[in-house]
Write a protein that binds this DNA or RNA. Structure first.
Lengths: 211, 211
DNA sequence: ATTCGTGTTGACTCGCGAGTCAATCGTGAC
DNA sequence: GTCACGATTGACTCGCGAGTCAACACGAAT
């Protein structure tokens, strides 16, 4: 704990970054630990010096980043802004994350968030924190009358987050445009779609409320 | 090809149904082929009599069901209904599918649709067909003036589908309510949220269009 | 110089589980 | 009766890959 100095290269970090690339390229289940070691230019055994298991590597990658998202949502929640701007900030954060480091976000979404059977279940609590934060923001908007309150906040947050994640998936796997402009438009469109749908004081369209 | 009779039990079907249960319970990667055989009360080797590999079992399960969804969307597209009703029909179909056979839907979503690194990539074409169908429905709505056309149809379809899938995920992994009423409300809420957001002739809220 | 400890190495073990295959069963045809 | 052939069985093979471990490198402390 005291012997740690500024090392020339932090091998642990090297391994994590290599793992992100390998997981993104080949998928967690398909790649071998030796692939990670090779990618990091490091001996096989060193991976097990820093991490207890292959799983722990992925868990670390995920938690490290997801924590930032949860914090960011928490901070946004506290700020005094219109709901719409808060949601815009969140959409921005996630989409920017993807634009800045697509491989990392691919791993997080594909191998954890959307792999709820495998790793997702270990991180359910963390994942849910994000949804809950968004839900609280929506709830605030409902209380101050900005948003309609006949749609549950939990529900709205799932729609909002689900829409964003689906967009990322489309960027990852289909050929959705990836220019800066595309990303900026995307932010506006998700927020616009969801916020407009949730906005208060509008003429309700028809007969939808009955079962 | 000609010797086939109405057998007392269709073992192939038995294996598929058992596989759905096992995949849903343990996940594709975690379960063993022997688990499937055991669940189906069938010898290990018989699985390989009917399927070339473990993968093929999952692929069959997925394609069999996804085809129905794609057909359903195609049919809906052709009908002469307001966009809103069309989208409602699709949301209903998916949510009803889950309500009727949660294990099957869990497998489809968790192991294929959202496992785009693994199986999803093999089925990308099929999956995309569904999105495209929804996008065409939205595009129709834009042409007849029901829906605003400043949000791309492709985009809107991703939001719509993503929101629904996120709801299913929440049912699968979190404790979202599962009464019939919950499911019915869910349908209304997704459609309402997304459709209202996409509806034409509304006052646009603010300043969001700039970067 | 030697002792320690942390970082680093990579060959090796070892269990698991997908896929194979030779044998057996059941039954329809002749 | 027996032949043929698909359905069915389950013990066995075999490769893969996660995780282990004994050895080595190197700097710091004494």
């Amino acid at each position: 704990m005291n012997a740690k100095r500024a090392e020339p290269v932090d091998k642990r970090r090297l391994i994590l970054d290599a793992a992100i690339r390998v997981f993104a390229r080949e998928g967690f289940h398909r790649c071998r630990v030796s692939d990670i070691a090779k990618e990091a230019n490091v001996a096989y055994g060193l991976v097990y010096h820093y991490f207890r298991s292959k799983d722990e590597v992925l868990n670390t990658i995920f938690s490290e980043r997801w924590e930032l998202l949860v914090e960011m949502i928490g901070d946004t929640e506290k700020q005094d802004l219109p709901v719409r701007d808060k949601l815009y900030a969140i959409a921005s954060f996630i989409i920017d994350s993807y634009q800045y480091d697509p491989e990392l976000m691919k791993v997080i979404i594909v191998e954890v968030t959307r792999a709820a059977n495998t790793f997702g279940s270990h991180h359910l609590a963390e994942i849910t924190q994000a949804y809950d934060g968004i839900a609280r923001i929506v709830a605030d908007g409902q209380e101050d009358g900005t948003l309609r309150d006949d749609i549950s906040a939990t529900f709205a947050s799932l729609c909002f987050y689900g829409a964003i994640e689906q967009l990322l998936s489309a960027w990852i796997f289909e050929g959705l445009g990836k220019s800066t402009q595309d990303f900026e438009q995307a932010k506006d469109m998700v927020v616009e779609t969801i916020c407009a749908g949730l906005q208060a004081e509008r003429a309700v369209a028809g007969d939808a409320t009955g079962a």
